[in-house]
């Protein structure tokens, strides 16, 4: 019995230690620091971006550099804020690492296909939307499923990707369907191919890309939600967020935004990039 209490005592001590280790102790110190001023001083903005998502942010295997719509836009915004010589540094993030990296100050902002939702806005501050995606579904050619409402039957299985907002939306549009979350787009698509689900859901741009690679699969029913992507910054960084919003307006006005949009999305069949011009 004595041993048991010894054990419990040690256990609680270590638990407490772990709690202090994981609590957001550092965020208070960081939130006092003005990110905008610090960035101006160092002449760099550090962005958390995707490195495994086609069109938005994908590592180029040859050069080892991340490329995509979000990367180009981040570069443009950096130049707008810091001037011509401003440097943009890119840190690859995943849905598991983006929040702790932002909180710990490893990155200044997250620009990684992150949809603005009220739930998320409790934890971070978003800029206004820089890209309006819409959610759609991808099915095998000839599938009886024609739109998202066809999935609203028990026994239907929808595949999605962990960390995306789209799985939550499916719960609203097809509450009877079962949702399986896989860890990335390629795994989710492979699961669709092997019949683990009836449809794959995520943002339309990504789905169109998949259907180009695999002609046996089509996007059906068009997009049924609006997924505004926002840049996330730490709470309390109002100056930085306002400056980002201003910079976004500037690149939209001078045509840089449209140029970048055209560069990445003009070759995606099914997606009319002209409708998205700003």
């Amino acid at each position: 019995m004595k041993k048991f209490w010894c054990f419990m005592g040690l256990f609680s001590v270590l638990t407490l230690m772990l709690i202090t280790l994981t609590s957001c102790g550092s965020s208070t110190a960081l939130s006092k620091r003005d990110v905008l001023q610090a960035d101006k001083k160092s002449n760099t903005i550090t962005w958390g971006v995707k490195a495994d998502t086609k069109l938005f942010g994908l590592m180029n295997v040859k050069t080892g550099k991340v490329e995509g719509f979000e990367i180009d836009l981040a570069k443009a915004l950096t130049k707008e804020i810091l001037g011509k010589n401003g440097k943009a540094v890119f840190v690859p993030v995943t849905s598991q690492t983006r929040m702790p990296l932002l909180r710990n100050g490893n990155i200044d902002a997250i620009m990684a296909t992150m949809t603005i939702t009220p739930q998320r806005a409790k934890q971070v501050d978003f800029t206004r939307s820089y890209f309006d995606a819409g959610q759609a579904i991808l099915v095998k050619k000839g599938s009886p499923i024609k739109n998202v409402y066809d999935l609203n039957k028990s026994g239907k299985v929808v595949l999605g990707v962990t960390g995306s907002n789209s799985v939550e939306n499916i719960g609203k549009f097809a509450p009877k369907a079962r949702v399986l979350q896989l860890s990335d787009y390629a795994q989710a698509f492979t699961a669709l191919k092997s019949g683990q689900g009836d449809a794959l859901t995520t943002d339309n741009g990504i789905l169109y890309g998949m259907s180009v690679e695999n002609p046996g699969y089509v996007v059906v029913g068009g997009s049924f939600t609006k997924e505004p992507y926002g840049i996330a910054v730490n709470k309390g960084q109002k100056n930085f967020r306002n400056r980002l919003n201003k910079a976004l307006t500037a690149v939209e006005k001078d045509g840089t935004y449209n140029k970048i949009l055209k560069k990445w999305f003009s070759n995606v069949p099914g997606l009319n990039y002209k409708e998205m011009m700003r």
Binding site: A51, D52, T53, K54, L58, M59, V61, D184, Y185, A186, Q187, F189, T190, M210, E213, N214
Partner: peptide, 13 residues
């Protein structure tokens, strides 16, 4: 490997 099959979903297997 994940980055490589990010280029094309067919590369996963």
């Amino acid at each position: 490997a994940q980055i490589i099959y990010g280029q094309n979903t067919n590369y996963i297997i």
